[in-house]
Design a protein around this nucleic acid. Sequence first.
DNA 1: TTGTAGGCGTTATCAA
DNA 2: TTGATAACGCCTACAA
Lengths: 339, 339
Amino acid sequence: MSRALSNPPGAARAQPSSTEVARLAGVSQSTVSRVFSAGAAVSPAVRDRVMKAAEALNYRPNALPAILQTGRSGIIAVVVGGFYNPFFTEFLRCVTAALRERRLEIMLVDTASDDNLNDIVGELSRYRIDGVISAMAIHSTRVAKKLESAGIPIVAVNSKRVGGMRTVSTDNRAAGGAAADVLVDAGCRDIAYFAGRDSQAQAERERGFLKRLSDRGMPEPQRALAGFTYEEGYAAAVECFSGRSRPDGIFCVNDLVAIGVMDALRKEFGLDVPGDVQIVGFDDIPMAGWRGYELTTFHQDMDALARGCVDLLADAPADTRTTVPCRLVVRETTRNRAR
Amino acid sequence: MSRALSNPPGAARAQPSSTEVARLAGVSQSTVSRVFSAGAAVSPAVRDRVMKAAEALNYRPNALPAILQTGRSGIIAVVVGGFYNPFFTEFLRCVTAALRERRLEIMLVDTASDDNLNDIVGELSRYRIDGVISAMAIHSTRVAKKLESAGIPIVAVNSKRVGGMRTVSTDNRAAGGAAADVLVDAGCRDIAYFAGRDSQAQAERERGFLKRLSDRGMPEPQRALAGFTYEEGYAAAVECFSGRSRPDGIFCVNDLVAIGVMDALRKEFGLDVPGDVQIVGFDDIPMAGWRGYELTTFHQDMDALARGCVDLLADAPADTRTTVPCRLVVRETTRNRAR
DNA sequence: TTGTAGGCGTTATCAA
DNA sequence: TTGATAACGCCTACAA
């Protein structure tokens, strides 16, 4: 396993420098620099000459010396916690678009936990990144501290706040409450919550869900520990429905789990959704809309989430948090009474 | 919409430089540099002193001057053509892992077509990236040329070759042939192909499929133009099955389309899969294994594909191509005769 | 409006 | 083995 690229460096013919362009255009290097830096005063004639020379040489300014000089790289590190969940990839799509609008580049980091993140951030900070956007919840104060000490701002999605971290979150608490309403209104009497693990977002959802159920005089729901994947949802449903008391309404921590649960109920137990069991998911991933599922769920406004992250990184004073509402999407896995 | 980050540059206290470490350790800056560049001769005593000083200052070498000097950035641009298809995201996962092993960083580019790529590559080349890995097929010779002239090697997945581009491809032709065998062996008499658009990979698959059908004495199959998404597959199936002659076996350009087709057949026409119609997909995305679908498909070895890309970028002479076999995964959407 | 010159933090070369 | 010094290619005063 070789360590890195072994190609000869600028083997053939690397990129020309501003000095070469200057020579060809018969001006000084600084003039070339001015032509390529927005809002500098250059006479039209000279500008034209320089542009021609640049074109002839196929010149593109090298970003690195500028970064060295200004300390600002225009690179943002984006952290995701795996690609298995369309939630992450959709977030990635939105954040990619939002960053591109601001002409910022993306360094992509995929890591299973925020432990590794500590090392990775160290690695990344060598490139003088301007900020970090994490789609993954950050628990470790160490990571936040490290970034802070390096002067790198971070904003995390659906994360609790540690240190001076900025956060952008879906209003998980409110959504949890709304999920309770949906199931109770639909006539469910024996309700269950299929939980994820170690996640601020999931904890908030659960809290809102429990609170609303109790407010509405419902008994404490069953709790199954699922996780965040289809398989975990499937397995949790098998275990839950093999037990004594079968719930007639389930709120799942996310859509992947919800879909796993649905498949298990249908295939393993021959149950009908929503006839026998009603199900509410979370995220509104594309598969939730597939005709085979038609899952009632909450749509996270990824675009707002992503844009919020970018805005917070770019404009906001440190130490800020933003909350984004999410929207109930009623499909076929709940029996919806007329309002 | 502000143009870029507005935070003060190294506002608080930026990263310390090797010069500061040198001062603290009582050595020259070059010595510090040597300590941090692998395989340089430094006496244990001095190395120790430098490391201590570095630790005290929380020093991390700045990568940018090094890039400036060596002309090698350790950054690879990875291009994907959208995140809607788990194929892309799974590829991204694998390539992320493979690059991390080699300690290379990833600059992520998402673009709908390789037209934009031309601009984007120009933008990216400002960072002196060491190479480009494209999960998206490259048609435009312009892009390849542009990269070549900048001395940036590119490798594309499932793409035809333009210029000196390297490629890594699944053996699409062979897979197409195998798909024909599956359907014919399973007793299908009226076969259809649901095609994608503008894709080398899809063209190869189709070619292999048609060839084998004809070799086995089957008539030319119906052809439906689907695309690459669930919705397009669904719509194409609706149109096809509203027509006169309904096929009893379908090979789809990818799993997303295949799943859309299945849902359409079941929901819109009440047809049974595989009872009435047998279906074969391509990619083996996670949803193909979901119990609601159990799709027979071909598993693309993403890990091999990704690793192939990285290897080709790192080790290979220019102008190379690699082919990766793929594997038939038999599930429940085909009636499988005993062999 | 344009040119000159210094500096950003490394690596690379050459002496010591 | 270590230190001085010159690049690398740009930005930014400052001077003309």
